[in-house]
Design a protein around this nucleic acid. Structure first.
Length: 329
DNA sequence: GGGGTTCAAAGAAAGTGTAG
DNA sequence: CTACACTTTCTTTGAACCCC
């Protein structure tokens, strides 16, 4: 039974009166008004409900469906499933993004470890991606750990920037066998590393030798002449060995007392025995010249051969030229 | 001791065959 | 088609040794 008067009276401070028996002895039990005389439970709630300031805003209600508390509090709360779910979605990356990130990190690591110019990084990234895309899915060189060192090596070689292969192999996660196995395949992705570029690199090395040992331009031109004359016979080997071979021949012909062959070899990081083997095979064996003893012992024989071929025109002529160049200095 | 010589061994290159 | 094992040949290395 609803007693409207009672409700009105309550707000005005009046005493409660039972509707049934008229008694004023009203008790409160479990938040309700109960008449002590007849036991009638009154329809009036003990706790009055007051409307908030605005009809659409209710105090203590959740403001929105997802946000509880301050942002920082939410972030600190490790148990927030909501936050965990959202951050998982937020941080989710597709395979490509993960791969790109991995490629960049690996290239940076190698460039950093080998002290190579960082400016080439983006170009190498492009190259790696292009090569990787052209490889059949599932093949082992699609693995960035294997692919990147090889691409970096080829790239630097193509840019004529000297790169230490041993050091590269040491710091990268590809073994020597795989590295060399893929080198041939990868060459088709680079503009042809042609003979002219190889010659240019060797010329640069010869120039380096002539500067380091102060041999002058005459030595450079002589070495270059030897290089171009014997090019077809000596080209099929490493650049440093070719450079060492031609500069050693030049030294043995005209500059024997000025600089030891072993010094040239250590400058180029090659072994003297390598040069000896090359000279024996490429010059003496190829031209059918008997009497080769050893590199330095056969210097005179070598010099005669060079004169015969026409690389050294005349001993006196060359000596005169040397004097002239040295006097010019 | 620096420069040069010798030679065995490592290892790179290229080819072939086979399995998956 | 690729990876891998194996072979042969050639190149390069490295260390012991020699000589002045």
């Amino acid at each position: 039974m609803i007693i409207n008067e009672n409700y009105n009276n309550l707000s005005k401070g009046y005493e409660l009166k039972c509707d049934e028996c008229g008694s004023f002895e009203i008790d409160t039990i479990n938040g309700e008004y109960v008449c002590k005389s007849c036991g009638l439970v009154l329809n009036i709630k003990k706790l009055d409900y007051n409307k908030p300031f605005k009809d659409d805003k209710i105090q203590n209600n959740i403001i929105s469906s997802t946000k509880i508390g301050h942002k920082c509090e939410r972030l600190k709360n490790g148990h927030s499933i909501q936050i965990q779910r959202l951050s998982k979605i937020h941080s989710a990356k597709n395979t490509n993004e993960v791969l790109n990130h991995r490629i960049r990190i690996e290239i940076s690591r190698i460039l950093n470890a080998l002290n190579l110019p960082f400016s080439y990084r983006e170009m190498i990234v492009k190259k790696v991606k292009a090569i990787r895309n052209s490889l059949t899915p599932g093949t082992k060189y699609r693995n960035p750990d294997k692919l990147i060192p090889i691409v970096v090596y080829m790239f630097m070689k193509f840019q004529k920037i000297s790169i230490n292969k041993e050091q590269l192999l040491e710091i990268s996660r590809v073994n020597k066998r795989d590295f060399h196995a893929f080198l041939l395949t990868i060459q088709k992705f680079f503009p042809k590393y042609d003979e002219e570029k190889k010659k240019a690199y060797i010329n640069q090395k010869i120039m380096e030798i002539s500067e380091v040992f102060d041999l002058g331009m005459q030595f450079y031109f002589l070495s270059k002449k030897i290089l171009y004359t014997f090019w077809d016979a000596i080209k099929c080997t490493k650049e440093n060995v070719v450079a060492g071979l031609v500069s050693s021949i030049a030294v043995l012909c005209n500059y024997k007392d000025k600089v030891p062959i072993s010094a040239i070899c250590s400058q180029l990081n090659i072994q003297m025995s390598t040069i000896q083997a090359q000279v024996e095979r490429r010059i003496f064996d190829a031209l059918n010249i008997p009497g080769f003893q050893s590199l330095v012992k056969s210097a005179d024989l070598l010099k005669d051969t060079m004169v015969k071929i026409g690389i050294l025109n005349d001993n006196r002529f060359d000596e005169n030229l040397n004097e002239r160049t040295s006097s010019r200095k």
